[in-house]
Each structure stands twice: as structure tokens, then as C-alpha cells.
Design a protein around this nucleic acid. Structure first.
Lengths: 180, 180
DNA sequence: AACATGCATTCATCTAGATGAAGAAATCAA
DNA sequence: TTGATTTCTTCATCTAGATGAATGCATGTT
């Protein structure tokens, strides 16, 4: 992660930009796709379904990379929106930057490991979504991303967990009364 | 995928084995983890939750790679079971074989692309699980894996989709009556 | 200060899918 | 063939979480 300069060096098209909270930096339907490295701030990616409802796929704070990998890989238009939950500074780079020819072997391995780790996280996400009740998924989120907890409004955490804000509120109430 | 021989060449510990249908080749709790390349047959990975219920994470037919990536990456004991849905021939290789030092740059890129594509598939899976009803997820499964459809019992497809066999049966009945 | 907008909570109702039980159909073993 | 096991279906009931509406708090803007 600390080697974003290497990536910048490799991908001549990469540019750094600063955005205000609320700015949408990728829209569903965009044909020009990018991969974003977050230098500062907080982004999220999400879809809007046929009923107009948002579903958050992921958050990305400092040091994270965020992109619509499915669309990048399968060559279609973007399905995910990406926007800023805080004023943010991002490096925007191009499609295959992570494994283009110019990337040297050492860096390739580094990128590979990042991707591999992220796969592990996604595996867990799928399994929990299938097998664990919302309350457990929330508990896991708290444990795994404690630093994000107070930077993200609750209704967005609910969306990430796949439940409504109301359901999350109820879960939180139960936790509080159980403790208190 | 066609270059499994390259991997074999690189990873001296890789071995080929044949298993009968029903054989469990990795158990939750195992500390010795492997990555399996399917030469012939059909495997699946799944967890057994606290209530004893199975949840299938993925299937892997000829040419696919299957492993418990979360446990491999985060260094714990296996969480996933892996077993054979058909008599199968698999190549079993070691932990970091996909990006170990001996792997040359060209192959690294090839492996990277495989992993990247798989990430795209997982992204879609998470999003559909959150936003699409079971009937749509089933329709997507049929469209995406038509060849697997008649090799996998329905209750396992249900498990993969995150629903009960009964619910899938109802969905299928509705589809049939709608068409007929 | 006054108003609007967004966020979290609570409650009453509704629904997709779970659970459990039972039977029909197919597969397998001897 | 016979029985045993697994697979799929149907139905009656139950539940986690969705929906929709109302309320109370914050924040921010002019």
C-alpha cells in the first residue's frame, strides 16, 4: 500500500484529484472505468437496484483501493457508483495498471498478495451473508472495522450489511439493553 | 488454466490424486491447507454452521481451482470443507504456489488475471445476495453455469443460493407453470 | 431565530423465505 | 425384486427482516 508512487510511476495516465464530500466520481453506465487509490478520506461503492434502492458493496478509507472489478474485468459499463463520504484525495489510475507489462515482478507479487487477501475477505463476506443473522454480521463489522464505525452513518452500515436502517436500529437497541 | 503443468513444475510438493464421489478432501479444522486444481470431476466447498447446517460457498468443475482462501491468507485452520460430488481427479498443491518466488513473471500475470476475474465473480455474488430475490439469483445461476445444472442436486444449488431446498422447489414450480 | 434537511428510533403491519412434517419419485445395495 | 436411502415436492405454520409512517434530534443555511 505504501508504494502508490510505484504505481504512479508505472501508469502514466494516473492522476491525483481532490473531491468534496458527496461527489460521485463514478456513475453506473460509465464506459470509462478507473481504479481509485484513497490517499485521504473515505469512499464507498454501491449499486442502485431496479426499485431505486442503494446497496453498498464496500467502503474504502486511507490506503485502500476501490473499483468496479466485475465491470473492469468483463468489459461492460460500470454497474457501481463510487462516491465520497468525506472530502477525499484519490489517485485515479487505469484499467490494468495492477498487472500491466511494465510492472516489475516484485511489485506484481505485492499486488497479487493484496488481491489474494481481498479475496479472503470477500469469501468471508459471502459466507456470513448466507449463514449468519444480521446481528452477527453487525458484530463482525464492528470487530473488523472499528475505525470506520464512527465515520460512516448507520444507515450506510445497514446497507452494507444487507438490512434496513430500522432493522439495524433494533439490533443496536437490543445490544444496548442487553449490556446496560 | 491449461497450464497446470507449469504449476506442477514449479511446486515440487504438488501431487495428483483420484477420489471417489463423496470423499471429503479437506475438513474444517485442518491445519494443513491445500489448493486444489480439478482435472476431472466436480468438487464443492462449504461450511457447517453452528446449527449444523451446510452452506455451499462454491463449486469447481474441470479446470477450476478451489481452496479456502480466507484461511490460507489469514493463517488459521480451515473453515471450509471440500468434497467430491463426482469421482474426481485433482492436483493438490501448496499454499503460495500461485505467487511463489519461482513463478516466472508471465505466469504470475496469468495467475493474477485468473484471480482478478474471480474477484469480479465474487463481487457480483455479494451484490446479488444483497439486492436480488432468490428467484433472480436462481435465474442467474442457470444462465451462468448451464453445464453444472444437471450435475448438481437441487438441494445443493439451493444451498449455494442461500435458500432451502423447499424454497427452490417452489421457485421452480412457479417458473414451470408460468412457462407452461 | 427560524426553517429545512438528514439521521436515528419506535411501532404496526406485511412478506419472503425458514421450519417441520409428510408423501411421491428416483437411485442404490443386496 | 425388495428394502433402504436420497431427492424432490407440497403444505401448514412461523419468523427475521422489510415497509411505511410518525417522532425526536442534530446539523446546516439563510
Amino acid at each position: 500500500m505504501e508504494n502508490i508512487n510505484d504505481i504512479l510511476h508505472v501508469d502514466a495516465t494516473a492522476t491525483t484529484a481532490t473531491y468534496r464530500k458527496g461527489t460521485v466520481i463514478q456513475h453506473a453506465g460509465d464506459r470509462q472505468l478507473h481504479t481509485f487509490f484513497v490517499k485521504k478520506g473515505l469512499l464507498r461503492s454501491y449499486i442502485i437496484d431496479s426499485k431505486g434502492k442503494e446497496h453498498i458493496f464496500m467502503f474504502a478509507a486511507e490506503g485502500w483501493i476501490i473499483a468496479d472489478i466485475e465491470s473492469l474485468e468483463f468489459g461492460g459499463a460500470a454497474e457501481l457508483y463510487i462516491d465520497c463520504l468525506e472530502d477525499s484525495e484519490v489517485v485515479m489510475f487505469d484499467k490494468n495498471c495492477l498487472f500491466m507489462e511494465a510492472v516489475d515482478s516484485e511489485m506484481l507479487v505485492r499486488n497479487f498478495k493484496l488481491l489474494y487477501r481481498r479475496m479472503g475477505v470477500l469469501q468471508r463476506r459471502v459466507i456470513m451473508q448466507m449463514s449468519a443473522p444480521a446481528a452477527d454480521r453487525y458484530a463482525y463489522f464492528i470487530k473488523t472495522y472499528p475505525a470506520l464505525l464512527h465515520r460512516i452513518p448507520q444507515h450506510m452500515i445497514a446497507s452494507y450489511l444487507g438490512i434496513t436502517p430500522q432493522a439495524l436500529s433494533t439490533i443496536r437497541t437490543k445490544i444496548a439493553t442487553a449490556k446496560g
